[in-house]
Design a protein around this nucleic acid. Structure first.
Lengths: 139, 139
DNA sequence: GTGATTGCAAACTGTTTGCATTTTG
DNA sequence: CAAAATGCAAACAGTTTGCAATCAC
């Protein structure tokens, strides 16, 4: 668990960090720094955004979080550091985790010039609720 | 060609836009707005960054460019709007295009809740030059 | 000539940094 | 007690916006 990783590193477990860890635990909403800040501020009114960034960096240093590049205007974070993929609804922006392993090869002329270590797939489409909503507007 | 797309839309072909189009044509370096700005400014010293963003938006509106979310600190652009994938060297950041079609399925419980339209694969690894450089330092 | 575009500066947003104060281990 | 973290404010970087002057069609 992430708490242990903090202890083995020279990282301190402050109440603020614990609150952030708790918010993140099992959280599959792929929150931004500000999402985390707003959620945790409810219990820690003095919490600062800088502390959120500080904690995210600490988490990253012990591989307790992964940074997503799915959103071009802000970084989003994923406490699930197991290799997985994402499916994004291009209508509402919902991001769903996909736990599957895809064994993909790059063209041979490239595999000579590159040592390919892994891949990450981003699926896109439209989710049922959005689809229904559209059908409602049109028909 | 993109010039035609501009004409059919109500978009005007200014010298600045032509210079940007020319810089972008066949360019596989996945430049940022600032990269484009710096490159084009050499010929157009009065060029402004706002014009670059304006042109990028105009291009996007006619599907003449695609926005990449590969870099978390700045947007990068790809004038190749054909569906393709990318291979990134996590040492030097080089981005290489991969033209291959991967027919991937999402788990059945998700395909019921989502109409999946496509996918984009990001491969990562290390390129030969970086690998050699590392070997040189170590050995 | 008219409506779109330019270029500048100012505004904005997300992220980072510096530092005095407080806290953890 | 020493080293690390907090919280604030200021600094930054990338992007967006408002607008008068200019330009393409």
């Amino acid at each position: 668990m992430t708490v242990e990783k903090f202890k083995t590193a020279t990282l301190r477990l402050t109440p603020q960090r614990l609150a952030i860890l708790e918010f993140l635990h099992g959280n599959a909403s792929h929150p931004s720094a500000d999402d985390i800040f707003c959620a945790v501020k409810k219990r820690f009114p003095t919490m600062s955004l800088a502390t959120v960034y500080n904690t995210l960096e600490a988490l990253r240093s012990v591989d307790g979080i992964r940074e997503l590049k799915i959103d071009s205007s802000r970084r989003r974070y994923d406490p699930n550091t197991m290799r997985h993929h994402h499916l994004i609804c291009h209508s509402c922006g919902t991001i769903v985790d996909i736990h599957a392993v895809y064994q993909l090869d790059v063209p041979p002329e490239l595999s000579k010039k590159f040592d390919v270590v892994g891949n990450q797939v981003e699926f896109f489409g439209i989710c049922r609720p959005c689809e229904d909503r559209k059908a409602g507007i049109i028909g």
